[in-house]
Design a protein around this nucleic acid. Structure first.
Lengths: 232, 232
DNA sequence: GCAAAAGTGTTCTCGGTACACCCATGC
DNA sequence: GCATGGGTGTACCGAGAACACTTTTGC
């Protein structure tokens, strides 16, 4: 966002709210702004859309410049266009969110190297620059809904995961307070037949080791084609 | 959209997909374009967003210029920004949909007087200008989902309506094929306690006259505050 | 009296929820 | 052997789905 004046008086950006899951907590990636406006405040990652760039492409670019990752889950949420949302001119922004496996994340993109980035718990992400509090809230609400209707939670977990990890993920996203019943959760998720028991187990834990599973996307897509509707 | 060149090379518009319900059929308002590009083709109503105008305000303006109506249900759906979606330059568009009581609609707005407008059945709205087929489909999908989760169907009906009319509305939106069971539908909708029996009946029909109901928004909002979740 | 839509209850099935104890491992 | 989380089954309840006949009106 350096040469603001190069852009037309009306400009558009994408903001890409990047979610990760770690230590039982849903996190979001924020950047410390290095320039005006809102210098030194935390903000959501985003940038101007190039003239010859599709919106989705642009959102993917934000992600890749920050994390080096591509081919990740990405979804458009809503466009924010209040007249005065940007102090330097009329800038509307198309908000996206991404779900990444936080362990895959490396501070390696061009943007990440030159800016201070941080994962913060969704509960602590407040007082962001611009209207980013509002944008984050909209994205988080969307994620809550999405996770109930589509098997996207797996995007946030390592390829191999335990049922308890999966349950904690749902608890962190859906109801940061209320717990899910373990037996009912397992019964339900296993009855869907979209998880594969890898025949492996956790190692080095000071308790009975949990079985490892992976999400079987092919099988899920086959079920969908047959009319199956995921719901949790 | 006359002085295209007055707008920056990157510009944004809103398109407002206006739904109405008549004769048991879900309809959408289309406009015959009077200029290039896509001259003489049918398109969805929309216009450029003024520099000092919020997106929602702009969408409301589209609606009002066409129909004279304001304070109607309006919801942002998604933003379409493929590089080449507009043949004359980079134009991204924020899609909204509105739900109106079609009987209230009068061809009176400034725009309506100068353009040919028409209600077409959702089933017949095809081959529209630009990427409007795709936009319409996205809005229709959103409406299907919304109508199941929120009591917005009433926005499409007259203030007083019969249960059969309401049922036909849901049938038209949800499954243009499959019928809903009359008894189950009535049981469900009445059990919600958000309809008021007006103590009036249809007149002049050649069969047993149906009771008239109205939607009790206050009551619905009270239930929501108590944790009630509408679902159909 | 006939055509046309309004109105009305019961049964069955299935999925959601509540709930408590034994198991495998590291230390 | 003890602390820690993993793993399992059953009983109950309520909502959704299937289903057919009587009522009221205009003509």
């Amino acid at each position: 966002m350096t040469n603001f004046d190069n852009y037309a008086k009306s400009a558009f950006t994408v903001d890409n709210i990047i979610f990760g899951f770690d230590e039982g907590d849903l996190k979001v990636l924020v950047i410390k702004r290095g320039e005006q406006p809102y210098e030194n405040q935390w903000a959501l990652p985003g940038n101007f859309v190039y003239p010859n760039e599709d919106l989705d492409t642009s959102a993917n670019r934000v992600l890749q410049e920050l994390t080096g990752l591509k081919d990740v889950y990405l979804e458009q949420v809503r466009t924010f266009g209040a007249v005065n949302r940007h102090p330097m001119g009329r800038v509307i922004t198309v908000a996206y969110f991404s779900l990444i496996k936080i362990k895959d994340y490396k501070l390696q993109g061009t943007a990440a190297l030159s800016q201070k980035t941080e994962w913060v718990s969704i509960k602590e992400a407040k007082n962001l620059a611009f209207d980013h509090d509002e944008i984050l809230e909209a994205c988080f609400r969307r994620l809550k809904r999405r996770v109930k209707m589509r098997p996207v939670g797996f995007e946030l977990l390592p390829r191999k995961f335990t049922l308890t990890e999966l349950q904690h993920l749902y608890e962190a996203i859906l109801e940061p307070s209320k717990e899910i019943d373990k037996r009912n959760f397992r019964k339900k998720i296993l009855s869907m037949k979209i998880l594969v028991d890898l025949g492996e187990a956790q190692e080095g834990v000071a308790h009975r080791p949990a079985k490892l599973y992976k999400f079987d996307k092919k099988k899920y897509e086959k079920f969908v084609a047959e009319g199956y509707i995921f719901e949790i």
